[in-house]
Design a protein around this nucleic acid. Sequence first.
DNA 1: AAAATAATCCCCTAAAAAGGGGATATTAAT
DNA 2: ATTAATATCCCCTTTTTAGGGGATTATTTT
Lengths: 204, 204
Amino acid sequence: MTRILIVDDHPLVIEGVKSLLVDQEDIIVVGVATNAFDAMVFLKENQVDIAFLDINLPDISGIDLCKKIKEEFPDVKSIALSTFAERSYISRMVQNGAMGYLLKSSSKDEILDAISQVSQGGYYLNLNIKLPNQPEPHKPLPFLTRREKEVLILISDGFTNHQIAEKLFVSVLTVDSHRKNLLMKFEVNNTASLIKIAVQNDLI
Amino acid sequence: MTRILIVDDHPLVIEGVKSLLVDQEDIIVVGVATNAFDAMVFLKENQVDIAFLDINLPDISGIDLCKKIKEEFPDVKSIALSTFAERSYISRMVQNGAMGYLLKSSSKDEILDAISQVSQGGYYLNLNIKLPNQPEPHKPLPFLTRREKEVLILISDGFTNHQIAEKLFVSVLTVDSHRKNLLMKFEVNNTASLIKIAVQNDLI
DNA sequence: AAAATAATCCCCTAAAAAGGGGATATTAAT
DNA sequence: ATTAATATCCCCTTTTTAGGGGATTATTTT
């Protein structure tokens, strides 16, 4: 018997998963949560084998939730649920301990497969990507420091280095350094490319 | 009796909608389609009152599908289904004839409300947006000429005016003009803001 | 305590973009 | 035929970025 917790803020998705699993005899949905906090509370009070985690949750991201679950409930196995548009988070979810990765466009069989694989201690990655737009292998996102993220967002808001420096109470030279580091980390050589990648990956 | 067609490439969402509607006596899901082509075929052969349309479909966008349906089956009322991330498409869906707009995070009651409103000939817009990011009222996108779109894309690809000029076999000055016009039309004053808006609105 | 990382500041030069004017063919619409 | 829109090209100046070096404090991590 596999006990499932669904964590997603979309009732439609919750219903979808539940309805796909309702006729499975060895699988039971023991709980649902629409945010990370409720999910953690539920896990404290109930035995769960597999948690389906949406990437976008209202409080903290599924990525962070995944990490928290791994730390506090190492026996619970996480399967990330994402839309195609969010596929770039695969690697980060797996880094944070997810044992499976399902696109929300997955079929029933794929979902059952994932549960079966993961409950047996294996990995399941659903990567049957239909390449509607980008066939790029999709480089992993570089790690950004707190300051770099701040600067990146201010750049994307249209502020110049001078204005950013004023806002952050630092020298223009400092902002300039962060900016150069951003270009380096993203392996681009101008602002246009930088912002494009940032927006496409929801770093905004 | 309201007959519903669900068009979405996510089985989970289809199941979710179906399962939320299964206990409604006056509502029946008469069909589902995972792409726009199948949806049109179904509409030709069946009587449908309301079509739930996902924004992102594998073949053509829900926006275009909405228009097609309005043209070929004016009696069918469309309700757009989107994730929060895709909320920027609201206005375009409505322009193309959608009578309702639901976020996939909507509750059962909201979905039933939408069906009831729309089947009575009214509009339903679910805009209970929890403002995680942008509370902006969303300006209408400026009209871009063919050339401006080309230049915009090349800018976003990280090319300089010089490189773009070479690619388009025109003078750098021309590219510069287009670029200035782009800044003017989008009411921004640098590349970062320009690309941010462009990517967020799928002009890429 | 030592080492790595992050954040800060500094120098220099060249390239690119932005802001402000224009003008002139070509094409499309009325 | 006249207007309007598009695409093209030109001048100017100033600001901003990019590219190439560095260096010095904090703060974490090991």
